[in-house]
Design a protein around this nucleic acid. Sequence first.
DNA 1: TATGAATGAGCCTTCATTCAT
DNA 2: AATGAATGAAGGCTCATTCAT
Lengths: 213, 213, 213, 213
Amino acid sequence: MRYKKSETSIATIVSAATRVLARQGYANTSLMDIAREAGMSKGAVHYHFPSKDALIATVLRQACDAVAERTLEAWRGEGTIDQRMRRGIDALWSVRQERGDDFRVVANLLAQSLHEPALRPVLSEYYQFAADQVRDNIVSQLVALGFRPRVPLAVLPRILIAVLDGLAMQIVVDDAGTITKDDVMSALESMVVSLIEVAPPAVTTPAQESTSA
Amino acid sequence: MRYKKSETSIATIVSAATRVLARQGYANTSLMDIAREAGMSKGAVHYHFPSKDALIATVLRQACDAVAERTLEAWRGEGTIDQRMRRGIDALWSVRQERGDDFRVVANLLAQSLHEPALRPVLSEYYQFAADQVRDNIVSQLVALGFRPRVPLAVLPRILIAVLDGLAMQIVVDDAGTITKDDVMSALESMVVSLIEVAPPAVTTPAQESTSA
Amino acid sequence: MRYKKSETSIATIVSAATRVLARQGYANTSLMDIAREAGMSKGAVHYHFPSKDALIATVLRQACDAVAERTLEAWRGEGTIDQRMRRGIDALWSVRQERGDDFRVVANLLAQSLHEPALRPVLSEYYQFAADQVRDNIVSQLVALGFRPRVPLAVLPRILIAVLDGLAMQIVVDDAGTITKDDVMSALESMVVSLIEVAPPAVTTPAQESTSA
Amino acid sequence: MRYKKSETSIATIVSAATRVLARQGYANTSLMDIAREAGMSKGAVHYHFPSKDALIATVLRQACDAVAERTLEAWRGEGTIDQRMRRGIDALWSVRQERGDDFRVVANLLAQSLHEPALRPVLSEYYQFAADQVRDNIVSQLVALGFRPRVPLAVLPRILIAVLDGLAMQIVVDDAGTITKDDVMSALESMVVSLIEVAPPAVTTPAQESTSA
DNA sequence: TATGAATGAGCCTTCATTCAT
DNA sequence: AATGAATGAAGGCTCATTCAT
């Protein structure tokens, strides 16, 4: 009961910080900006967070969770395996393409992590979590169906995430770019299938012959 | 004659700035740092560049060129189409995986561009250039060989670049990650092939013959 | 009854403040430090003391008392006049040389009093008290024995205190200095005697008779 | 030539800092105060001194020198040994009693050094220098005249300094105190003599008899 | 009696920028 | 073409103080 107010304030601050960080980026964000957005004094922010870095770390953690949660929902729910896969991939892309506050924060701090190692563990976990999602909901499914991946099982999901992240960067830089959602979806589907070798029925497909030759 | 000295100084400053920016990142780099690294006074830096942002823009432009140039070399040179493709992809990955100064600068400012639109055009061009390289040296080749892409021709190269960029980010965050160079190379090869549909009827296509030839 | 708790808290705070002040000095001590040391909240400290300065004043008063009390004990007790004198001087020096919490607080706030006149009365009283001790226990004794001081009676004790304080400062600054306790003791004895002129004519004074009587 | 301006500014800042520090004390002095007193911006102060502590250290060093210089002058000059001694002691006391800016700074930082060891070396040197002055100009002279000190030669000057410093503290706290300049002078003279045992002529004085009795 | 929350002023420091030389 | 000096606006952080509970 007693700490209610504090928790409320903390939540207010973190969400304000997320908005400001998404809007202005790490390099251009001051505690004053955050305090103003949160409707509090600078002192109040410092009362709840010992330092700017501690606040940023919290914001990052929460933003990662939010992004992850968003896609997590998509895998859940009903539908055939195929439908759920599609929905999942759709969510993975949407969250990047829409560039919501949480995603922008993650992207911004990702770059910052090049120079601030302290940020890396959180992001590392974030990637691991995203990759696990893809593994559990796509790769495993396909493997269960008899497909055999051409690349290490652990790597496959990471490559999928990579495409999405890489494309996201490109559309940041040139929004009017030529990449549509349909492009992404169909490309991903092809990729997923291509990275997996059909095992049981075909012993050797002509295409595979030519590749391995 | 008269301009010689100035141009030399400018080059000194830009290269110093690249080093500092690569080392410390945009958010932690001051003009003083750059001046010190260049062995000049702050005033001198300002004499050559009207503002910090102008300098940064120049640095970014040069870093983009350097990264592009690095891969450009790889496509040139001798060897079969296959060898040249491999060499090109290898270079595209190496430049990211090694995280040299130029690449770090590009990556860092890419994130900065989320919030500073002025940087975007340069990066947009950079991506376009990289994609064009891939298109000219890989996709076109394959198309000429009779493969037909499953995704729009313009999109295919961008997806390749995306995988590389995306993976690069992941290894920033967790260097001890599970992705090896071999993983990347084989995954990319599979992807390239998968995104290209084998001409339906052919069991053994002419294209395949010509590749192995 | 009702006041008991409060008084306990006040004592807790004052003693915590003494420790912190001794450790960190006035300039580096915050109310937060004191509250933490006392195991209370900042608010609680403010409940008992209207302001930081009020607390400091209380602390100073108590520290002065503690230092004075320490030497007071030494004069009391048994022994010949000579022994008691020696013990007293010994205590006066020990308390300075050991640099206990109380003494450090007094020394620190003494300097502070240069700029905060409010502190001066307390310290003035402290010095007066110390001088009185010396007067009652040393000077008076000697005078009773027939010695006549070369300097005003009121000044003599102050000079003794001054030597001790001055030497204390010097060993703060250079602990490895060349001054030993024996040096101090023998110097003080010589001084005491020198500041007192033997009654010119008398070879054996009546006073001396009465002492031995 | 080129650095003239800088040196001028530095001198301006140091002397402003000395004034402010003397007036307000370490704990209450901010860089802003110093800058204002110097008629410059805060930035300018930081341009010349990397940190507040560096500035303070410089100020202390200069204040120590100034105090030392003041007394140094007194020993020089003409007159009999006796006159020069008197003049020297007079200067040693005057500088303390007048409480000029330099002395106040030294006194204030002396207390501060209890908690900031970085200040100690400078002060240690200061004391050593003062003691050396006294040794060279008083003690040595007396020894040359055949007097033999009762306390170690190195300690004697330190005791003299100590009396002066100790008395200075007392008059800070209670200016209306009962100590006059004459008191100090005569007390010191007695002390000096008492700490030195006349050797050649007197074998045993009555006073000594009574002390040892 | 005591706490947690919040404020706002102030502190030291950094920094892009300007300017006389 | 380049430097040293100086500025002034922030920036992150600390802290005495206030107040509702």
